[in-house]
Amino acid sequence: MMKKSLWAFGTREVVFSAIGAALYAVLSYGTNMLQIAGSGNVSFRPAVAIPMFFGLAFGPIVGFLTGAIGNTLSDFLSGYGFYGWWGLGNGLMGLVPGLIHQTITNFRGAADIIKSEVMVVVGAFVGMAVASLSELWVSGVDFATTVTINFMPAFISNIVNGLILVPILMVAYSAIVARSGR
């Protein structure tokens, strides 16, 4: 059987991107009771594990769209407006773990989980860095300010959520993979 491209965007990717985005929005809305004190607009969102996990499970495009569309939908549900650069950052947070999608052979294997955890950290770093750096351009603040106020709270909360929840989701998903034979 021909191996599917990492960047393929077929019916499956369309459906899982849409499901991932809707899940990210609903779960962000439903689990936003944890707030980081004194960190501007950063809430503690356990749902950030969704774009990371969807990237790992279905590829980088699905991860990107889950994060980007999901963050936009979540802001629309809360009535916060549209912040495209934070959508882009959330998208990258799903895209980067998705880069190792084809190398994952066992979703409950220790090696694959460790590899995924590393990509979760890299993804959160890249995604939140891009989103935070946009504030240099938009608000005219300096690098140190945006790192302290925007980047650090978002990055730390996202890696904590991702490192705890992504392995749990991966182990649960391995049962589905085994059942469906995909």
Partner: peptide, 24 residues
């Protein structure tokens, strides 16, 4: 607290993935 969210996130996510296979 984050771990406590898992019993909510995991079933909803896995159910929607199963439904997604049928939709696709």
């Amino acid at each position: 607290q984050i771990r406590r969210v898992a019993p909510l996130i995991v079933p909803v996510t896995m159910n929607s993935i199963l439904a997604g296979e049928d939709i696709a």
